[in-house]
Amino acid sequence: MKPKAIVLRTAGTNCEYETNHVLKMVGFDADNVHINELIRGDKKLLDYQMLVIPGGFSHGDYLGSAKILANKMTYKLGNDIPEFIEKGNLVLGICNGFQALVKSGILPGFGGNYKKQETTLTMNDSGHFQDEWIEMKNVNKGKCIFTKDIDFIIPCPINHGEGKFVAPKEIMGKLKSNDQVVFKYVKNPNGSYEDIAGICDESGRVLGLMPHPEKYFTHLNSPQSTRTEISNEAAGLAIFRNAFGYFK
């Protein structure tokens, strides 16, 4: 049976279409589910093996990026997500999804406490939304299951206004010593501390990142594809293939 992924959406989510497509491409069954369906109990998180929180402007980001969604996850879903993680399932947050994971405290989730916010993602140094292709490299030493064997640079777009990763010094130290830093920008686009683009939890099964690997699933997406011949196995797929591989 195919592993099942839930693409969690809410008012203002806008990357569910391509995220769902990529999940299916690599072998998942994928459903786009509104958070209200989980809150009401119409759908159950535990019926799925992977939770993906895609990009967007959840609830307009009006109280700071993903703050309202994070609150809904914490206060309306209660223990659902921590329990989901503890059962050995996977969680991936991209862009606004990463912001939601950070603001709900699911990341970095030190000591298995998924409810304490330790870091944040704040306004880019430019002061506004940026759309550009960046390059990121996997710096994880082996904890993160999403980046197993990724020893190549992944180019993909960033599309965010609040993507600057910041954390107090001791938290930065802890992230590094725990091997929770996953992706770094090759060239820092937004002022993130130590070029951080993505981090994972202590289990390595929860990953959050600002760039959009799901938007680089075919060579046609690459802005360089008219210049150089690029393999149709686009680099952005690797993260999703690893997630699928985890369930094999």
């Binding site: 990357c15 279409y17 990529v22 940026q130 759309d131 550009e132 938007k215 699933f217 997406n221």
Partner: peptide
């Protein structure tokens, strides 16, 4: 141009 998202929906060629 760069303040506008031109990648969302994954179809940018």
């Amino acid at each position: 141009i760069r303040q506008y998202d031109h990648e969302v929906q994954g179809g940018s060629i």
